[in-house]
Design a protein around this nucleic acid. Structure first.
Lengths: 103, 103
DNA sequence: AAATCATGTTATAAAAATATAACATGTCAA
DNA sequence: TTGACATGTTATATTTTTATAACATGATTT
């Protein structure tokens, strides 16, 4: 879970995952998409994502295809994000009843 | 959104938010809870959380009470985490129909 | 087989994050 | 009023992350 949260801390890495959301892409395609960065940097970001299991790598000949793996995201949603986000409902309920209490 | 993701990258900060999930606590209480860290470090972590709007600070005399603000978490859930986590359902559907296709 | 393509790795510099030390300020109790 | 309490800020050292340069490897095309 730690690796996933750390991986998602970087905007570039989130955008990489955005790119992969609908379709897998080759490493080369991603390097073109983020052409303001040195290729090595993109490689390093991809490595962070891979070590967090956020992408699955598939080699085909000399190409490397990167697939989004949504399961760790699902996992942090269920285990951390969700329970904390649920407090927003609790908070709204509390505000609501506080307001009703003052009517 | 960037600040929220960066704030959540740190395990210590996530644990701070865990502490605040059910009840607000004073800064002093949090420093005691994380007594392996220097108080200045806890202060710095709290500052990151505050600047990400993940906590709301309420001063009462010489005490500072820190309240979890769940709304930014809700926000990243709805805007980023959720849509990407939904791919897990899509992925499972795809695997399922792939399996059915091979029957 | 040689050249090109696609990607990978290591080294290193710079930037960012994290930790503590030291000093400071405001509130409360004696 | 003084001392204790609760917290805040700045300076600085250390660690981690992020960026590029340089070199390397395997697959494909010519």
């Amino acid at each position: 879970m730690d690796r996933v949260f750390k991986a998602l801390a970087s905007r570039i890495r989130r955008e990489l995952l955005d790119c992969l959301k609908d379709n897998p892409r080759t490493t080369g395609e991603l390097c073109e998409r983020f052409d303001t960065l040195d290729r090595c940097t993109v490689m390093q970001h991809l490595k962070v994502l891979e070590r967090a299991d956020l992408i699955i790598v598939q080699r085909k000949g000399r190409e490397r295809w990167n697939h989004l793996n949504p399961l760790p995201i699902r996992h942090i949603q269920d285990r951390w994000i969700g329970p904390h986000a649920d407090q927003a409902v609790t908070l709204l309920d509390r505000l609501k009843s506080d307001l009703e209490g003052t009517d």
